[in-house]
Design a protein around this nucleic acid. Structure first.
Lengths: 109, 109
DNA sequence: GATGATTATATCACGTGATGATATATCATT
DNA sequence: AATGATATATCATCACGTGATATAATCATC
């Protein structure tokens, strides 16, 4: 699947998908992602099992993330090269939304 | 519907919903929103009729936006008090995502 | 060593909402 | 009068996030 098609399918992405992808900038296994996101967001986001493993399967199938070994009960993943490009685009998109939001918000206090 | 329930149902909100709500910081009619968002995003986001009028109906039903008069063929809307609270929360959420994204992104260049 | 909490992954059914397509009508311009 | 822009509305579809449920191993602790 080419990058342009992936960009269309993955951006805008959901908050949970974003944090899953962001977590995998370093190698992690599913459960580790849960805990990491929990910590990163101060407990605001608690990933459900369905959300997490569903997303992981889809992302691996599409090559946005890739397997990075398997140790006893754990499957390790990491973000792929294409995944990194998608993530970059998504971060920029979020920046645009935030900037536009702040700009207009300040007009009404 | 109380604010807490609305917050649950509206955040995180989609990119299109965000821009629709943001547009209504000033009074606008549906078609005007289309053009405004088009301009604000440099043509990146072109709202489809289905997306727009569907969202508008839902948002008015829930009291996130309110009718602001009707002139010939146009129905004017504006954001409501509760809508403003929701929008504020959403902008803060976007800020969090963006900050976390940038923070981790810089670690990998 | 039994019990309960935590670690760890997987699958399924459900609902919701975004989207594209389609329809309708008016208005301005050529 | 024909075309394109203005303006709103509805409908079917589809993908995705979510919660529930299941399974099992490991760990702490009593």
């Amino acid at each position: 699947m080419d990058i342009e098609k992936l960009r269309r399918e993955y951006t805008p992405m959901s908050e949970t998908a974003f944090y899953i992808l962001l977590s995998l900038v370093e190698e992690r296994h599913g459960y580790g992602i849960m805990q990491y996101v929990d910590g990163l967001t101060g407990g605001r986001i608690r990933l459900g099992a369905g959300t997490l493993y569903g997303s992981l399967s889809r992302m691996e199938k599409d090559g946005v993330i890739e397997a990075a070994g398997e140790e006893e009960r754990r499957k390790l993943y990491r973000i792929s090269g294409i995944g990194r490009e998608i993530l970059k685009i998504e971060i920029m998109r979020l920046g645009e939304l935030y900037q536009n939001g702040m700009k207009l918000w300040e007009g009404i206090s």
